[in-house]
Amino acid sequence: MTRHTKLKPHWFHILLSLADRDLHGTAIMEEVLERTESHMRLWPGKLYGALKELADAELITEVDAPDDAPTEGGKRRFYSITRTGRLTLHEEVERLAVLVRIARSKGAGGDVA
């Protein structure tokens, strides 16, 4: 089934960052910044507020830092996406894909003449 309500964009990007590996907060921020070519900037307050909310909603969970993780500036918390998180992300991707399909069928999004 496809979701009809959209995920907050910064939640989506955080979940996407955690889709293939566990990361700490600053790494998530940097990855999102790079992936969106600086269009989405997760300021620290926004980032950690979202991480707390995502953890409360059980979409992500805190995990132990990998043994080889650098400990400069203190030990960092690492986050991992949960099964529910992965499902939510999957649903959001499907929702976006449907939107894109509809748009393309109406001729939008291709080359602009």
Binding site: H24, G25, M29, W43, P44, L47, Y48, G73, G74, R76
Partner: peptide
């Protein structure tokens, strides 16, 4: 502490 690190990186 982690927010400080994130801010300094930015």
């Amino acid at each position: 502490a982690e927010m400080e690190e994130a801010f300094l990186a930015l």
